[in-house]
Every structure is written in C-alpha cells, then in structure tokens.
Amino acid sequence: MSDSSINLWRARMPAAFGPGPMQRGLRFLGLALFLAWFIGTLWYFDFSPTRLWNGLGGLGKIIVLMIPPSPGELWIEIMKGMAESVAMAFLGTFLAALVAIPLGFMGARNIVTVTLLRFSFRRVLDGMRGVDQLIWALAFVRAVGLGPLAGVLAIFISDIGILAKVYAEAIENAEKRQAEGVTAAGGGRLLGVRFGLLPQVAPVMLAQALYFFESNTRSASILGVVGAGGIGLQIAERIRVRHWDEVAFIIILMIITVAAIDWISGRIRRRLINA
C-alpha cells in the first residue's frame, strides 16, 4: 500500500490510527503515576527480597510443625466450635436476608419513586456497609458480651447493608412489562410487586443469600478471634500456644465444611435457576 493512500486514510479518519499525541501523553502520565504509586507503596512497606525470603523460611517451619495434623485432646471443643461457626453464619445470614427483602424494595428506583427518600435510605445502607464486619463484632462483644450472639449480630448488621443493595439492584433490573401485565389485570400496586416482580427476583435473592451463607462461614472463623464465638476462638488459642498440628486439623476441617456448604448451595442454586 502506497504512502499517499495511507495519508489519505489518515486525513479521513485520524482516530483509526491510534491515539493522538495529547491522548498518548495523558496515557503515559497515568501509567507513570500508577507505577510511582506501586513502587512507592512497596518501598514504604519495606518489601525486600531478603525479608520475603526469611518470612518464607518461617512459614516453612510452621508447615513442618503442622505435619501430621492432629485433633489433639480437646477435639470435642473443636467440633463444637465448628458447629457454632456454621450456626452463627446461618442465623446471621438468614436474618439479614429476611430484613434485606423489604429494605431492598425500599431502595429500588422503580418501587420508591421519591428520590429524596430513596437517596437518604441508600446512604444509611452505605453506612452499614462501610463498617467492616470485624468492627461490628468488636462493638457487639463490648455491648452483649463474649460469645456467639455478638458474632450473629455482627454478621446480621453488616450483611443487611450489602444484601439490601444487591436486592435493590436486582429489583431495578427486573422487567417492567411483567408487572404491567398484573396491573392491567386489575391488581393493585402491592399485588403488582408480589406477582409481577417478586417471581423475577426471588431466585436471585435466594442465590445471593446462599452465597453469603457460604462466605460467612469462612468469616465466622475470624469473628471468634475477637471473642465473638465459634471456631476462631479455638484456632487463636492454639496459635498462641503453638500447637500447629491442631491448627492444621482445624484448617482442614474448615476447608471441608466450606466445601460441603459450597457444594450443597451450588446444587440448590442450579435447581432454582432451572425451575
């Protein structure tokens, strides 16, 4: 192809020949800033190959101490802790999912049409979401004392915010025409939501709640570390006295439990989507 015809095309469609000098400069600047940030943080946290290498050595020693995993003498305590964690996750998620349904409808643009109301409501949800589960757990341990109740409340409060937002978005993405069909048949506003919207979003809601149950079982183990009950307490105690073989046993137990929940919830989700 001749230079003249290339130039002809360049004159006709300059944008087709890649970014111009201005755009290229901006891109370069953005990349430079990003790299500076990346290298800056590495430097600030003193990431050096020797430190990483030494840390790896320490980790290796711990892993050696973990083999073979052993349930120890207090294995009944471990089992109880695991059951407690799963129960905490279940109770917290179930309550949060229940409360999040009305809240989700209140946060959805197609349900609550008063912008100010919806806006302020959504900001409250943002606030609940903005505080991490662990902070809630610490607060509830002070408020209701050590034990699983604090953990359940922490899961409950932090998940309401997230689930309500997810539900609200599912409701906003639902098809309007189906609800219109119910309205056209003489159903009221509430019945329109009940028969026109809920069947569309119910599988999404349930699937999300199941996901949260699964991930909360994982995080319930952390909550125990700050005194909010469950398996975390057992694991923290054993790390303190360096019983690494028992720690390994608890970790394996946790992995099996989460995998089992994942498998079961996956089957339920597939059922729901196909039904």
Binding site: M1, S5, W9, R10, R12, F17, G18
Partner: peptide, 17 residues
C-alpha cells in the same frame, strides 16, 4: 499505519469505513 489503512480500505469496499 499501513495495516490500519488496509483494513479501512477493506471496510470501504463494503461501505463500512
């Protein structure tokens, strides 16, 4: 630039430049 011009020529043949 040559490849881009070639692609545009190919598109232009089908009125899609």
């Amino acid at each position: 630039a040559e490849e881009r011009a070639m692609a545009l020529t190919a598109l232009d043949r089908f009125d899609l430049a």
